[in-house]
Nucleic acid binder design. Sequence first.
RNA 1: GGUGGGUUCGUAUAACGGUUAGUACCCAGGAUUUUCAUUCCUGUAAUAGGAGUUCGAUUCUCCUACCCACUACCA
Length: 555
Amino acid sequence: MERRTRVRFAPSPTGPLHMGGVRTALYNYLYAKQRGGDFIIRIEDTDSHRFVPGAEEYIIEALNWCGIIPDEGVDENGKVVETPSERHPHAPYRQSQRRGIYKQYADQLIASGNAYYAFDSSEELDAKRAECEAAGQTFIYNQLSRMSLRNSLTLPAEETERLLRETTDWTIRFKMPQDTVVKMDDLIRGHVEINTDTLDDKVLWKRADELPTYHLANIVDDHLMEITEVIRGEEWLPSLPLHYLLYKAFGWEETQPRFAHLPLLLKPVGNGKLSKRDGDKMGFPVFPLNWINSEGETYHGYREDGYFPEAFVNLLAMLGWNPGTEQEIFSMKELIDSFSIDKVSKSGAKFNPEKARWFNKEYLRMRSDEDLASAFLPVLESKGIKADPDYVKDVISFTKERATFVTDFWTIASYLFVSPKDFEAYGIKAGASVEPQAADNRRQPDPRAKVFDDTLTAPFLAKDVDKFWKPEIVELVLKVSEYVNAYDGEWSVQAVGAAVEDYIRTNEWPMGKVMNALRLALAGSASGLGIADIIARIGKGETASRIAFAASRLS
RNA sequence: GGUGGGUUCGUAUAACGGUUAGUACCCAGGAUUUUCAUUCCUGUAAUAGGAGUUCGAUUCUCCUACCCACUACCA
């Protein structure tokens, strides 16, 4: 029997979705789309205590930004889906709104002898755990211990009846079979076996809030929603036997989904999985979008940090999966075409922020100058600059290869928009020396850190001034300025560049020294764009005035 | 502690019993350039350790080590 492929991404709204979660969603999406199947989003909010306002909206928006569009789910064009429709036949997709349907399944398990009522309070269990721990053991609610605890297996029927009626903090637990080997298959890991004696009697349903726990809700919903493959994080592998047993207890083996457990995303240095703090410590985002927590702290997002969604998706796709070829750049469509679950690796992948930037750089280069210009205009506006779109496009066309992010154009070419005048504001005086930068580039934080200053001008670096701004060279630079001012040939980068170069060469001046000093005066730094590129764009007057200004301030 | 999963250059990975163990990022050097960047070329660098199976193991089996996850009335 061939079933239509249906997969789901089932996050819990307990906070912002981090990049590992996005990757899980992406792999599900790719898997479904390749097979012409459905990708469903279901919100697993059965833990009322851990609910975080805004988290669900964040998840939807993040996936949307990535271009991971669900076929069915909690949201339809910003409107919450509450009732079943042709497009969303299994609505609602939020488990808290499905609470009515789970109890009957728990009851079914009780009736079939696969589950039982447990009356131990959390306090009692906590005490038991503490007790065992003190004795150097671990308390497990399982086939051994359940016979000495308060539940429907040990209590007389009348007492069970009474407690069910009169108390409200009982639970329904799964009755784990004894000494049974559960044989499981994982699409990524292959065959896995485990003996049930090492497993415990998981809580399936809680009377206190009349809600199922993850395990019950998950299996019931996957069954009801006709899910064919469950692709989720490796942290779920240990509960796979329980899930297998649950399908069996319900008699749903025929339509039980196949499982794939994805490797974890690890932090770039050291050990352990990527956590929300890592990003801010190491200068890269861990989240797709910015997130402000209840304490008002902001966590960086890829979107706000200037990543293109295509680049983000691409880099996530390559973290734990590879196509078996040497292709690294993939559009979403190409990913859909070439994705295969058996090429997903088994081991955890350390995230590499440098490679992430490289991906963005590649995508920036693929963008048209028009697109980049329209993305860069708001950046200019935020600096109080109103620029001509055509001029901006022109600037981008020859600075594109130097940029990784759109905001880089400001660092690279700010002096094509404003004059580098206010160098004293940087506390740098001519002749002052600057400490050399730390040498180990491999461990350097995000080099864009200095990009986001509020200044309108580029600083004169003292080391450049020391090196290039010598009185005898300044003389020559002033001469070049006069020459440019008097130049009346064709005004193009090529022509002006050739003319200036000829002029310096004919006079037999030191080309390097004059050019660098020139750049220092025009750009505020001895390294940067070509002299001709600058002069041709800022024009004669601005060229003359920048040189005059620099000469007056730095001599 | 118990159970499960994992282990190829610094990182991501390729090689599904036979290769000089490949590629990309990073790093280093060189060429080009008025500087920086780009581009191009070159280079450094890995099969965790030990047994076994085999004519031959990165690849299969076992042991050890290390890493990770799980071990909640959380997902």
